[in-house]
Simulated scan of single mutants.
Amino acid sequence: MKVRIAVALVVLALTSACGSPEAPQAVTVTPVNAMPGGAEEIGTAPAAGNADCDREASLRPGPQPAPGAMPPGSTMANILARGRLIVGVDQSTNLFGSRNPATGQLEGFDVDLARELARSIFGDPNRVDLRVVTAAQRETALQEGQVDMVVRTYSITCDRKKKVAFSTPYYIAKQRILATKNSGIRTAADLSGKRVCAVKGTTSLAALFALDPRPTLYGVGQWTDCLVMVQQGQVDAISTDDVVLSGLLAQDRRNLELVGASIGDEPYGVGVKLENQDLVRFVNGALDQMREDGTWERLYQANLQQIAPSPGPPTARYQD
């Protein structure tokens, strides 16, 4: 008991001598929302793609070989011998190519189309190796032989056709605008003085850069990066193909809305290495079969019906 009293007296004496301890000063830290890695303002005109070709025309298919019976010496025979079709796809574009967080599996219209092309070669849709490529990596992946083809919302342009061979279009998208609600943005003209996001290496940036007056443009690596930036207030809108925007809208309907008329058409094609013309003809033959036997419609209903009623597959146009 005496010890406790002594300790209490010492503590009281020290407190009296030193004074009451000062209360800690409040520190205010302003949170900073960092931009996604690789995001940058676009100050120079991206490649726009010219109109000196019939961009939707492709090589006419010949007699379509049966699965497992590819012509000897053909690109398809080499793929058959390897045992897998290697396809470049996306993992961040909802509805076309995204990774299911619950299963870890890639899914979407483009992914299902890639599986159907594997079915055309092997008779088995699972004989496909899906490799994730960014928009900026598509041409390099084909030219360096990293993939056999790219099925990744790949818009056909005349400039791209000088470097990559394309199938006939399997989907025609429309470039539109995804804006925050109550932003005042209703048309492309309303983008003047606004900040707009698009993925680097896409035709969307070129179309936006051509607007007069031009908005402030930011380029990123993935469309989900644009979604993060608009949610953090770092940009006012996103502009690209309507189907891509619909996939982003599905993730934040509370704050975003799809607005404006089409800025332009975007035909999607399967990209193939320029030298592999036999593979282009084969893919076109497979797409013809998908249009005729209802496979295209089945893929649409499985992946895209929430966007709008099916427009039906695009009509193929061929050149010899």
Results as ranks from 00 to 15, higher is better:
116 E>M: 08
317 R>F: 06
155 S>A: 13
184 G>V: 09
96 F>H: 13
214 R>P: 00
64 Q>G: 07
313 P>H: 13
226 C>F: 03
188 A>L: 01
47 A>L: 01
57 A>V: 02
242 D>S: 12
249 L>F: 06
154 Y>G: 03
70 M>G: 07
301 Q>W: 02
247 G>D: 13
264 G>D: 09
256 L>Q: 07
115 R>H: 05
156 I>F: 07
102 A>Q: 12
16 S>L: 15
167 S>I: 02
126 N>Y: 01
262 S>P: 04
149 M>W: 09
20 S>C: 10
294 G>L: 12
96 F>C: 01
184 G>W: 13
169 P>Q: 11
207 A>E: 12
255 N>A: 05
139 E>L: 09
36 P>H: 03
291 R>P: 04
300 Y>R: 07
238 I>H: 02
71 P>I: 12
100 N>P: 15
98 S>D: 15
120 S>Y: 00
255 N>S: 14
11 V>D: 08
281 R>T: 12
199 V>P: 04
119 R>Q: 06
142 L>Q: 10
282 F>N: 05
113 L>W: 05
64 Q>K: 03
23 A>M: 11
154 Y>F: 14
251 Q>W: 03
21 P>E: 10
204 S>A: 15
124 D>W: 04
173 A>I: 06
112 D>H: 03
55 R>D: 05
295 T>H: 02
43 G>W: 00
182 N>M: 13
2 K>A: 11
283 V>W: 01
7 V>D: 11
298 R>H: 14
156 I>K: 12
43 G>R: 06
